[in-house]
Structure formats: structure tokens, C-alpha cells
Design a protein around this nucleic acid. Structure first.
Length: 262
DNA sequence: TTCCGTGTTGATAT
DNA sequence: TATATCAACACGGA
């Protein structure tokens, strides 16, 4: 369920188990119709070489090889990365399998097939081409304040990857809940203090979720993530959680402590 | 069985 | 032109 923290967790798995091993082969996995994957020539560029570094920008992972090219992974709605030993067998929904010399493998899994894998030569050029804003864990307060503007809802602005890269539906809701801002508030109407609150809060939230490797059960009890259902009790006040569509996305919020837009 | 969805894109509307 | 909305993508799970 990949937003920035899940993607960061996948990146760390690659760092921990897939770097500095020679690639024997990269193979397409199971049931790959409708999945965008590198062709044979692109895959062959990695054979005999090692991956030496990873980067993450927003929800995108880059895995760089000593020979120059990078794998660029996007998880879509249901993608994940697994590093495992050959004897354990390829996981279900493995769409691309990297086979290292020895007994190690790395798979890109994607049950719903919204993700993809590409081979690129320059991550910075790719980030520009994808029109991604600064990464959510790197953007500073003044940059953020400048980028959150417009007539649309703050909820929509937070999940706009061109403004800030990495915040998705769940953590946008969590950020608004923890700052007491209603999701319908117009982005351009936010005060300087509110912009600062939002920046500080999503930074803290995303870091905390990364720190528990995106295991939601380990997050603090009052958080909205544990009560994303209409009628549940708010964890911060006596309110009752409600939901509504904002910018086409379901948004959960507490009408009691998240002030209605004026 | 029917509905929903953690993401992104492209067409359409304002 | 800029901005906003919404269906579509494919599939598993509630």
C-alpha cells in the first residue's frame, strides 16, 4: 500500500539485500499483460553488473547500477519489492524478477498492475520529466508555503505530486486531522501559521511511519489511521469521524476539531 | 454479488 | 490559458 513511507521501506530492503551483487539475469514474471516492463535489450544492460545505490523521490524508487543505467520503479496502488533467496520461490504477483549470482533474488510485485518498471539513465532528468515537486521529507518550510496556493482544496494540494512529492491520500488526511484543518479549506486561504503547521506535521508523520517500517499498528493510538471509518470516535476530541469526497478522493476527518472552511 | 480503493493519467469542464 | 474534476486503468478484498 505504497505512499512515501512504504516506498522508503522498499528502498531500504533493496539497500539491505540487493546491492553489490552481480546480476545474472532480469526476467519478466507471471501474468505480465498490461504491465509496463523494460524490454529484453533494456534488461540486458544490467547483466554482469551490480546495483550500487538507491534513491527515492516521492513515491518513486531509483536503483542505480555500476554500469550506468538505473531501474525506475513505481508501485501504483498495490506494488511492492521483495528481496529473498531463490529457494523460497518467487512471490505471488511477481512481475519482474532480478536474479543475482548466488541464491539471491529481488522481485517487483504488483497484484493490481497499476505500477511499472522502466530503465532510465538520469534520475534527476526523470524527476523533472515526471514534473515532481520537492520530496516531502526534504522540502523546507518556506518552499512549502510558496507552493501551496490556488483555489482548490488543501487536501487536493497536499496530494498533488507536482507541489510536494510523496504525500498520498492516507497521510494527507492524517496531516489535516493532526493540524485541525478541514480538508475543504482553500489552499490559497491558509494562514502562514497553518502552512507552517502543515509542513511540520506531515514531516513528523512521514518520518514516524518510516521509523516503524510502515507497520501501521505500531503508530500512536489517537491517529486517524486507526479510525478511517465513518462513525468512529475521534482520537483527539469527543467528535465522530465523517467522510466526504474531496477532489474525487475519499477523505476522513473530524468535523469537531477540523474547522470548516469559511 | 456489488462496491470500493493507498496512484496516475488524460479528457473534459470551468 | 490555467485550474479543477472525474472516469479509466486491473484486480483483490470487504
Amino acid at each position: 500500500m505504497p505512499e512515501l513511507p512504504e516506498v522508503e521501506t522498499f528502498r531500504r530492503r533493496i539497500d539491505a539485500g540487493a546491492l553489490n551483487r552481480t546480476v545474472a539475469e532480469i526476467r519478466p514474471g507471471n501474468d505480465i499483460t498490461h504491465v509496463e516492463l523494460p524490454d529484453a535489450a533494456a534488461r540486458a544492460r544490467f547483466e554482469g553488473h551490480q546495483f550500487t545505490q538507491t534513491r527515492r523521490h516521492g513515491k518513486y524508487i531509483f536503483v542505480g547500477s555500476a554500469s550506468g543505467p538505473w531501474l525506475n520503479l513505481h508501485m501504483g496502488m498495490s506494488g511492492s519489492v521483495r528481496v529473498y533467496d531463490t529457494e523460497d520461490g518467487d512471490p505471488d504477483y511477481a512481475r519482474l524478477v532480478v536474479i543475482f549470482e548466488g541464491d539471491r533474488r529481488m522481485a517487483f510485485r504488483d497484484p493490481r498492475k497499476f505500477g511499472w518498471v522502466r530503465v532510465i539513465d538520469d534520475p534527476d532528468a526523470e524527476i523533472a520529466r515526471l514534473e515532481l515537486g520537492p520530496d516531502a521529507l526534504e522540502i523546507d518550510a518556506s518552499q512549502f508555503a510558496d507552493r501551496i496556493e490556488g483555489r482548490g482544496a488543501v487536501k487536493s494540494a497536499l496530494i498533488d505530486q507536482a507541489k510536494v512529492a510523496g504525500i498520498g491520500n492516507l497521510w494527507a488526511d492524517e496531516t489535516l486531522y493532526q493540524t485541525g484543518i478541514h480538508p475543504d479549506t482553500r489552499a490559497g486561504d491558509l494562514s502562514g501559521k497553518q502552512r507552517g503547521d502543515l509542513h511540520r506535521t506531515f514531516g513528523r508523520i512521514l518520518k514516524a511511519v518510516c521509523d516503524v517500517d510502515a507497520h501501521y499498528a505500531e503508530l500512536p493510538d489517537p491517529w486517524l489511521i486507526h479510525r478511517r471509518k465513518t462513525g468512529h470516535e475521534c482520537g483527539r476530541c469527543g467528535g465522530t469521524i465523517e467522510s466526504r469526497k474531496v477532489g474525487g478522493r475519499t477523505s476522513f476527518y473530524c468535523p469537531d476539531h477540523q474547522e470548516r472552511a469559511t
